[in-house]
């Protein structure tokens, strides 16, 4: 299996799809059907005060092959609500999780007199779905976003067995280039390692919610940089923005090399 925690470290550092042949205890090499694959790609989410952005590249890979340049990773969980889910990892599991969520949101609506599921309920439900599959995990790293009943942006990020923070996050990233993007977002969204110039490094720069234009710039910068440095990221960038007026989507080009 190629869960991230099982990746070899150190000098044997390899791409995310590399799985070393396993030696069974008898000393012979064991061949076994591997139900997982890694289809590469990266997703990020950034919140503002009253809006949230989820974005993912549209490259779909198997090993060194590019299967498709146009596979989207960000899903709307219904036509008339602000729930958005981005998943990355094993493509088949990712789509299955997204579909399970779409179905749950739809069922909820019909069972609650056409009321939409709140983002916190969807967040808890997603955690339950992933956790219930813990003995055969869905290799899908999820980021869920929406607006709460006060119109405030909510963003949740999960590991593959459903751990998440109920408080939510201001920014999140998952997938093959997340290790490249997370420190960038730490610096640019949380203002980590930024200080008030006159304080000689004594006073941290105060954190303020970002405006939509800054967030859009950050998203594009994060992905153009990740595209330069990671082979599994590129081709196209799907950016989904949730505001009180609804959900909008934009797809921009990334480098295809």
């Amino acid at each position: 299996m190629s869960l991230p925690s099982m990746q070899p470290l150190g000098y044997d550092q390899s791409y995310s799809f590399h799985t070393p042949a396993s030696k069974a205890s008898g000393g012979y090499t064991q061949h076994r059907f591997n139900p997982y694959a890694d289809n590469g790609g990266t997703i990020i989410g950034i919140t503002g005060e009253d809006f949230v952005v989820l974005a993912g590249d549209t490259r779909h890979t198997s090993g060194y092959n590019i299967n498709s340049r146009t596979e989207k990773k960000v899903y709307r969980l219904g036509g008339d609500n602000g729930l958005v889910l981005a998943t990355v990892g094993f493509g088949a599991d990712s789509k299955d999780v997204a579909e399970t969520m779409m179905r749950a949101v739809n069922d909820f609506k019909f069972n609650h007199n056409l009321k939409n599921m709140s983002v916190s309920a969807a967040a808890q439900y997603l955690s339950t779905v992933l956790y219930n599959n813990r003995f055969f995990p869905k290799y899908a790293n999820c980021v869920l976003a929406g607006l709460d009943k006060d119109g405030k942006a909510r963003l949740y990020s999960y590991d593959s067995v459903g751990s998440y923070s109920k408080e939510g996050e201001t920014r999140a990233s998952a997938g093959s280039a997340s290790s490249l993007i997370v420190p960038f977002l730490d610096n640019q969204v949380e203002f980590k390692n930024q200080f008030v110039p006159s304080s000689k490094g004594q006073e941290e720069r105060p954190v303020v919610p970002l405006d939509p234009i800054t967030v859009a710039k950050l998203v594009k910068d994060a992905f153009t940089s990740a595209t330069e440095r990671h082979i599994e990221v590129g081709d196209g960038l799907q950016i989904v923005t949730v505001t009180k007026d609804g959900v909008s989507e934009e797809v921009v080009d990334l480098k295809k090399d």
Binding site: A37, T70, A92, D96
Partner: peptide, 25 residues
């Protein structure tokens, strides 16, 4: 569109399975 034994799915205007993914695509 393409689907494989793992349930991995994707779509593109030019596709090939197996060796063709390296040589034909």
């Amino acid at each position: 569109a393409s689907a494989d034994l793992l349930g991995t799915t994707f779509s593109a205007p030019a596709l090939s399975t197996g060796y063709g993914a390296q040589l034909a695509v």
